Amino acid sequence: MPSNSKLDGQVALITGGTSGIGRETALALADRGASVAIVGRNRKRGRRVAREIDARNGDGWAELYIADFASRKSVRNLAVAFRDRHDRLDVLVNNAGTFRHRRSETGDGIEATFAVNHLAPFLLTHLLVDTLVESAPARVVTVTSELHERGAIDFSDLGCERDYDGMEAYSQSKLANVLFTRELAERLRGTGVTATAVNPGFVPGTGFTREASIRNRLLLGLFSVLPLPFTKNVEEGAETVIEAAASPEFSDVTGEYVSDGVIAEASDKAHDDDVRRRLWDVSAGLVGISPDYPR
């Protein structure tokens, strides 16, 4: 069970916070006293969650930001809006994600799975890193998946244009999450800001597969109601995310892959330092920022 450590006076920003694991994480951090900013695409659902947080949050506050992580402009607007309102950020939870059955591109011309799952949190973290450092100690928690073990970073085809496979694209993006976390941790050493990549387990009840095939949506729907030993419900899946974001036991943990509430061993490919550094530089170019952040 996640610890009940108090977060009074802290500010948390949670992407994908209007449903699933993000919602559960937002509620849990609010219960500990944090003020919570949730990010989502559905305004009606987001307002409902924000009211739910307000009703149980004591002296803290809840607010909603609408953003589309398939758009670089939307991610930039989100960061500007948050910085205009707040001068501190103690916890950033990069939770928003997608799974696409068919290949599609964003308006920026990037394959959608890679754009939403990796480039959006990469860019958002860059845009908020100064606020995180000024608020230190602070934490960046990026939600990945055990499927990162199946992933491979193919620099010749990051957009999966050759023989697109939804699972391969997703696995590549989840491996990118772990590599991003490890490089971010190196760049932030000594600042008081930590970075962890968290595997919540197999949680079929989340909404990230809304773009999956009908067959896969039906299968996951079945998994979500059957008592299968390899699945977790949303509350169970959120526990490790909450621990990484709030537990004192993780206050000094950085650059690690966390699964089932403990530090675990990521795949060998997640430990390739050359790929890690190259992915950082390529990602910076794709979103139009300097690869030198944070200095």
Rank of each mutant, 00 (worst) to 15 (best):
M1K: 09
P2W: 07
P2Y: 03
V11P: 01
T15N: 12
G16K: 06
G16Q: 07
G17S: 01
A26M: 15
A30W: 03
R32N: 00
V39N: 07
V39D: 14
G40T: 03
G46Q: 03
V49K: 13
R56V: 12
E63H: 03
E63Y: 00
L64K: 15
F69D: 08
S71F: 04
V75A: 15
A79D: 05
V80A: 12
V80E: 11
L89D: 13
V91C: 12
V93W: 15
A96F: 00
R100Q: 15
R102K: 12
R102D: 07
F114P: 05
F114L: 12
N117Q: 09
H118N: 04
A120E: 10
F122G: 07
L123R: 10
L124G: 09
L124K: 14
L128E: 13
V129W: 07
V129Q: 10
E134Y: 08
A136C: 11
P137L: 05
R139V: 06
T144M: 00
S145K: 03
E146I: 09
E149C: 08
E149P: 01
G151C: 08
C160H: 08
E168T: 12
E168A: 13
A169S: 05
A169C: 03
S171D: 03
A176H: 13
F180K: 07
R182A: 06
L188C: 11
V193H: 05
A195N: 11
V198L: 08
V203R: 12
V203A: 13
G205N: 11
T209W: 05
N216C: 06
L219Y: 03
L220G: 11
V225C: 04
L226H: 12
P227F: 01
P227H: 07
E239M: 02
A244C: 05
S251M: 12
I263S: 04
I263Y: 15
V275S: 11
L279R: 01
S283V: 06
G285Q: 13
P294M: 00
